[in-house]
Amino acid sequence: MKHSRRQFLLGLSVGVGSSIVLSGTAWADAANTLSETDPKAQAVGYKEDATKVDKAKFPTYAAGQNCGNCSLFQGKATDAYSGCTLFGDKQVAARGWCDSYSTM
């Protein structure tokens, strides 16, 4: 079946609209991630990248600890970001770390 130019353009506009919605969703998720400058994050020394934890300031940190394998992390270890019971609706990086790290 041969499609007209009009059908093609209509299909294209629907595809572009979907992309805009998906981009908006991705942006909304990014806006919901926990910032290291958030007062709650600073209170527990949250770092989005566990390898950047100040080991002198947080001697309880050990290599291999990260939010993804913490018992407070609400996602799967393979999720890049997920909820944490400490931070309400904010999402933390699975590769992150804070002083409340727990394996229990």
Rank of each mutant, 00 (worst) to 15 (best):
A41F: 04
A41D: 02
A43G: 10
A43Q: 08
V44Y: 00
V44Q: 04
G45F: 01
G45S: 05
G45N: 02
G45H: 03
Y46C: 01
Y46W: 12
K47W: 09
K47S: 07
K47I: 11
K47D: 11
E48W: 06
E48S: 06
E48H: 13
E48Y: 03
D49E: 13
D49S: 12
D49A: 13
A50V: 02
A50N: 01
T51D: 15
T51K: 11
T51R: 15
T51G: 09
V53I: 08
V53A: 08
D54N: 08
D54T: 11
K55T: 04
K55Y: 12
A56T: 04
A56N: 04
A56F: 04
K57L: 04
K57P: 05
K57N: 08
K57Q: 15
F58E: 02
F58Q: 14
F58G: 00
P59K: 00
P59G: 02
P59L: 00
T60K: 11
T60Q: 09
T60N: 01
T60D: 09
Y61L: 06
Y61E: 06
A62I: 15
A63S: 12
A63N: 02
G64W: 03
Q65T: 04
Q65H: 06
N66K: 07
N66C: 06
C67D: 09
C67K: 07
C67Q: 12
G68F: 00
G68E: 01
G68C: 08
N69V: 09
C70E: 05
C70H: 10
S71G: 14
S71H: 11
L72G: 15
F73K: 06
F73R: 06
Q74M: 13
Q74R: 12
G75N: 13
G75Y: 06
G75I: 09
K76V: 10
K76W: 08
K76Q: 09
A77W: 07
T78D: 15
T78K: 14
T78S: 14
T78Y: 13
D79H: 12
D79R: 08
D79M: 13
D79F: 10
A80E: 14
A80H: 11
Y81I: 15
Y81A: 11
